[in-house]
């Protein structure tokens, strides 16, 4: 992967999500079939977008017999981190919007702290 991972448009993301969440290498017609569970796609548009993703170094395309297959070059986790990072940077910090109620909304925490908190929960057992 030579280029830096950049944010991709909605439709390309849709295709990438299919590729990430299904066994790869995957053929164009398989991608189309899964995408069409939600809405109809034209094969031409799909082809164009897949080629664009190859250009972006998100995918590797290979001819296997008659059909072309695709393998992701960027993992979903890596991409998520990039996108959420730029997102947080853009919106300055962790408080994205106040209008959510999240289960946990604070900063990250170290492994030792996790262990300590685990011990803290378990320490209540002896008082039972």
């Amino acid at each position: 992967m030579k280029n830096k991972i950049t944010k991709i448009p909605d439709t390309e993301l849709e295709i990438m999500q299919v590729i990430w969440n299904n066994p790869t290498p995957i053929t164009t017609s398989e991608v189309k079939k899964i995408l069409e569970k939600e809405r109809p796609w034209s094969i031409g548009a799909l082809q164009t977008l897949l080629n664009r993703l190859i250009e972006r170094d998100f995918l590797k395309g290979e001819m296997q017999g008659k059909s072309k297959t695709y393998t992701p070059l960027v993992s979903e986790q890596d991409y998520l981190i990039v996108e959420s990072k730029s997102f947080l940077k853009r919106l300055s910090g962790n408080s994205i919007t106040h209008l959510v109620t999240s289960l946990y909304d604070a900063k990250s925490i170290s492994d030792e702290d996790l262990d300590e908190l685990n011990a803290f929960i378990e320490s209540t057992r002896k008082n039972d």
């Binding site: 981190i81 990072k85 962790n94 900063k107 990250s108 925490i109 300590e116 908190l117 803290f120 929960i121």
Partner: peptide, 30 residues
């Protein structure tokens, strides 16, 4: 509590090393 901790743990894998304030958030969770 364990379920909350698991969420915290999962969030950790998403976060960037740039996030700070470990101690404060530990105190809050505790």
């Amino acid at each position: 509590c364990h379920a909350i901790l698991k969420v915290v743990h999962n969030k950790k894998s998403m976060n960037t090393p740039l996030s700070t304030c470990f101690i404060i958030s530990k105190k809050v969770i505790k």
